[in-house]
Design a protein around this nucleic acid. Sequence first.
DNA 1: CGTAGGCTTGAGTTCCCTCAACCGGAGTGG
DNA 2: CCACTCCGGTTGAGGGAACTCAAGCCTACG
Lengths: 249, 249
Amino acid sequence: MVALDGIPVRDCTYCCGRTKSICNAIEEKDLPRLLAASSRLHLPSGRIFIEEGESAQAFYVIAEGRAKLFNLFSDGRRQISGFVATGDFLGLAASERYAFSAEALGDIKLCRFAYETMDHLTEQFPHLQKRLRAEASRELVKMQARLVLLGRKSARERLASFFIEQACCSEDGLEEALNQRKNLSIPPVISLFLPMSRSDIADYLGLTIETVSRTLKIFKAEGLIKIQDVKTVTLLNTVRLKFISEGNN
Amino acid sequence: MVALDGIPVRDCTYCCGRTKSICNAIEEKDLPRLLAASSRLHLPSGRIFIEEGESAQAFYVIAEGRAKLFNLFSDGRRQISGFVATGDFLGLAASERYAFSAEALGDIKLCRFAYETMDHLTEQFPHLQKRLRAEASRELVKMQARLVLLGRKSARERLASFFIEQACCSEDGLEEALNQRKNLSIPPVISLFLPMSRSDIADYLGLTIETVSRTLKIFKAEGLIKIQDVKTVTLLNTVRLKFISEGNN
DNA sequence: CGTAGGCTTGAGTTCCCTCAACCGGAGTGG
DNA sequence: CCACTCCGGTTGAGGGAACTCAAGCCTACG
């Protein structure tokens, strides 16, 4: 696919961008063995590194950067099933074949674990298997929320949900604060960098680019957001957006 | 929740309705130990046995019968995230709390595994942990398809997808046959028993009952299905339905 | 300065939703 | 045994949210 790029194997950040990644499932002293079992990739923006239907051979951890996961129809319709960022795990949604395609959003660094070497590792480190299961469960919980969004939410609610989701990804603790209505601890405004295009957002939310554009305009007019530039949005009223996202408009 | 109903522990069918269930992850001789760690429930139709947001304490295996999984909005909107049948696994989509509610569709029998006893079991039977992960992966693949359905398919395509999905559940090998276009091996007509109401189908597909009803009428007029009675539908042209479900129409 | 690509805006359309009436089988009670 | 009600499902009329198509705008880039 792509040659290794020679990053030293000891560099843990290469598969452990965050706590949610898998390295915390094993002891510090065993890390080198885990890393030795993986290969590191450096991909340019736009590169498709997993193709739907392709025989599934490996997991990936995003070491740095972002990617989008999607499914394509023969007539061009597209559904983006998720955006992933540093530390996220990829390739659990596969039995024989990958259930989605994945494309780099900007340059990214990946850590690749072939299934078979992973199988050896999970035998040596039982915690790892458990960790993978936990990761899959997390993923399933997120999917559940996405079903509700696509099946039952209006365009307005979808966009609000999207902003809240993105904000929660970039601000640790925000999700909890919003859920508990502890408004005091919520930063009044949150600035988001959105590397994806309008078309990506639309395909993620099951809408068209025009509807996304128009809804953003409305949010702007209502003072809910400020559009710094086309890829940078500032949320001016997170609590209200959260409220809208839940259908309480 | 409900008293055990005294079924002998040796009765494997109680947690192993099918190959996809978890018993095949351990040796025959160890089964009694697995079963001893579980409790058996017998619930009446309509009983809600998992509630969204409730602290997650256990897995369930459907030993017999069917159930629906769903999420509720405060304003009454509902999204059904899945129907499960004998042998299916429940409760993986949970981190701290369940991400969905579950309700019996007709009388059902359940096998309940508390997380903590399950943790002991997975230590004794490493295969079990792997099996759980595989189950979660299967689930994720299905979810992926549901995202596409809810995000990008028309009402017509959704109903066709629904029929194909239900047919594949009740006819072993059908899915493969349809994917490979080996039409010879596909039974010409398939009769389906659908225990769920129109309202359930609508909430599963992100539609309204009226749209479901109207679309069925159209399918009938086109000779694609025959409606035996309100809960029994015969698919008259599975290949065509599969075609429609994929957007080629 | 010109072009291309992504984004926005406008006008018109459509698919599905909403609301309302109707239908028919199951259960109840006189 | 029939009348009544209830409830899930069907059918029809009308409306609206989001889509489609088309034009215009802005920024990036050669």
